[in-house]
Each structure stands twice: as structure tokens, then as C-alpha cells.
Design a binder for these strands. Structure first.
Lengths: 202, 202
DNA sequence: ACCTGAACACCGTTCAAGT
DNA sequence: ACCTGAACACCGTTCAAGT
């Protein structure tokens, strides 16, 4: 009678799972993976310390869920960049690179988490699919370009790997603070140009 | 009188610090960063749980020491590869790449740790120097090549970044199991060739 | 100087019990 | 179905005390 809200909901939450994920991403962003604690998450969400166990069997399960959410956002960004019409191949490649690096700059801790070699063999099927989708945007672009003769012939997977390594390397160096983010973004056009035209003089 | 060894040494160890590091690297390799525990390390080394505190002010300090040791080994490998005589530029680049990827394949967990964005601002001066030395091998190689006109003109730092991102991307993808290690090693010559000659047809 | 042993404030995970 | 509260076995870190 004295409570103001949620007359019909059981306990505190309609969607504790979502609330926990939201809170987790916040502390991930602000304090890093090391500061993630199920108990603190429960406290912040106003729930008992055992409640998260109902929604995530493990701490790793929560981390995997964060990673999966990250991939979904990244894949939307990559897809949108790759599908832009009216661009040259180099233009599309640059747009894709910009989308990826932008994500890395905005979500460095999350990116690290997405690429960590942890992965619960149970829940990792979804994660594997999400990773494939990320590479998919790039693979399609390379296959298209190859058909049009805009890039060299050869095993398309190998060629995709070269491009992927170049972009992921930049993203990883940014996320780990080995490279200044702003500087990398400013040099991005030239980076892509060098990737396509090579380091050797023509 | 009844002990067989170390008649003059205090307690159990002549070099507890080294013993802890050795044990730590072993569990890092076998069970991952998440399994590192100062208390377990102390138990494995036959010492009280507070003893590690004398040698590492923090768990992070031990991790930083592991990372520093990793950089020292990596830098020796990179230096040896970069200084090989009688090679073309592409040959030296390939040797450097092979050294780096070899390290990544042999020490995936350690590499992840070396590139984690943690770094105690206190002890990180040494770490920063070690990182610089790693990049140094590559930077010198690029500067040499540029002088001889073997690679394109332009800001040498930018060009070094392109090569570094390409190699580090491969290494990171291998370490995170996103790329099959053997496959990547087999394709390494072609990878370097594409890096130098570009993805566009000539 | 180097280590011990107890203490403190945290964890993740499990499980009977409540609503 | 969903959550609580207590319990268990661990942590990292600190600090007086021992040798």
C-alpha cells in the first residue's frame, strides 16, 4: 500500500536481465572488465546477490552476453557502412574502416572483451555466428571487388584476411592505447590507400 | 640440522621472486589469466600467502612483471629477425613477421596480457620503453627501406603504423583464436607480399 | 631483510526456503 | 517463475609479530 510503483510486478523488476546487462556495460565502460562483479551489479540494481544467477548461469555467461550485444551493434554499423551506394571500392573500404575504428574508439573495453579467448563452449555458438557476420561484410565486399577486377586475383579468404588483419590491428592498437585514437582516425584515408596500393612504390 | 639443503639461506627461497614469476607464467600458459591467484601461486611455491606481497606490491605488479618479461623475449626475437644479413627488404619483413607470429602462436595468453590496457602508471615506464623497443625494430627497417627508395615516400611513422597494424592484427586474431595459427603461418609470405604490393592489381 | 599467521572485506556459486 | 538469505570455499591486501 505504501509503495508508489509496480503494483502487479513481482519483486523489483520486470526485466532484471536487461537491467543487469545495462549496469554491467556501464561499469565495463567506466571501470574496466576487472571491476565487473556480480554482487556489485546486484547491489546497484537493488536485488539480492543471488538473483543474477537466475539470468546468467555464470559470470562468464554475463560477459558473453555483453560481447554478443557488442557484436550486434558492431555488425549493424559495419553493414550500414558496407552498403552505402555510389562509392568507389576504396570509398567503401574507407567507410567500413571508419565504422570499425569508430566502434573501437567508443567501446575499447567492450572490444577487448569481444576478442578475448574465453568463450564458454556452450553459449559460444551465437558468438561464433556474430563473429562470422562481422567478417561477412568484409568478405562480401572483397568478393564483389574481385569480380570487377578491382583487386588482385587469388584465394578470396586470404585476401580478406589481409584486410581484416590491417583493420583489426589498428582497432586493437587503439583499444590497448598503443596508438592515439585521434591520430589513427586522421590517418585512416591514407592507411586504406596504402593497404590497397601497397608500401612499395609503383 | 635435519634439513638437507640451504644451510645458510633464510626460509625456503633464495629467489622467491623468480620462482613466483616462473610459476605464474606456467599457470598463465596452462590455465589463462583468469586462473592467476597470488594465494595459489604462494601455495605452489611452498610459501605463505602473504609472502608474494614482499616482491609484488599488487597482483597487477606481478602481471606487469610477466608482461615485461614477455616484451624482453619478444624484442630479442624481433631484433634477431630484423638484423639478418643478406636479405631483400621483403625477405627481412617476412622474417620479422614470422618472428612476431611465432611468438603469438607460442604465447597467446602472454601476448594478450602484454597488450591489455591495464598498466599500473607506476611500473609502466619500463613497459612503455619495452613497447617502444618492439616498434623500434620495425621503424628502423622502414626508415632504411625508405632511404633506399624501396618503399613509398611519406611520413615514416604513418607507414610504420600500416605495417605494425597488419602484423599485430594477424597476431591478435591468432591469439584470440579468430584465425587458425597454422593457416596464418602458411599464408604469411603471401600476406607480406600483399602488404608490400597492395590489394589493387598492378 | 624476509617471511608468517591472523584478520578484514570482499568475491562466485549453490541451495533450501519463501512469495 | 522469480527472488531471498544463509552458507561455503575461495580471493587480495594489510600488519603485527617472529627469525
Amino acid at each position: 500500500m505504501s509503495r508508489m510503483s509496480s503494483t502487479s510486478r513481482p519483486y523489483h523488476h520486470g526485466d532484471l536481465r536487461a537491467a543487469l546487462l545495462k549496469s554491467a556495460e556501464r561499469t565495463l565502460r567506466e571501470k574496466g572488465v576487472g571491476a565487473l562483479s556480480l554482487r556489485e551489479l546486484a547491489r546497484d540494481t537493488g536485488v539480492s546477490h543471488a538473483a543474477p544467477g537466475r539470468h546468467f548461469k555464470d559470470k562468464q555467461a554475463l560477459i558473453d552476453a555483453l560481447a554478443l550485444d557488442g557484436y550486434e551493434r558492431l555488425n549493424r554499423a559495419l553493414g550500414a557502412a558496407a552498403d552505402q551506394p555510389g562509392l568507389t571500392f576504396e570509398g567503401r573500404m574507407t567507410a567500413l574502416a571508419r565504422a570499425y575504428l569508430g566502434f573501437a574508439v567508443e567501446n575499447p573495453e567492450l572490444l577487448e572483451l569481444m576478442f578475448a579467448r574465453k568463450h564458454d563452449p556452450d553459449g559460444s555458438a551465437q558468438l561464433a555466428a556474430a563473429v562470422d557476420q562481422s567478417l561477412g561484410s568484409l568478405t562480401r565486399m572483397m568478393a564483389d571487388a574481385q569480380e570487377r577486377g578491382e583487386i588482385v586475383a587469388g584465394d578470396p579468404e586470404r585476401i580478406t584476411t589481409v584486410a581484416a588483419a590491417s583493420l583489426h590491428g589498428l582497432a586493437a592498437l587503439i583499444a590497448s592505447c598503443a596508438l592515439d585514437a585521434e591520430e589513427a582516425m586522421n590517418g585512416l584515408d591514407e592507411h586504406v590507400h596504402l593497404l590497397l596500393h601497397g608500401l612499395k612504390p609503383r
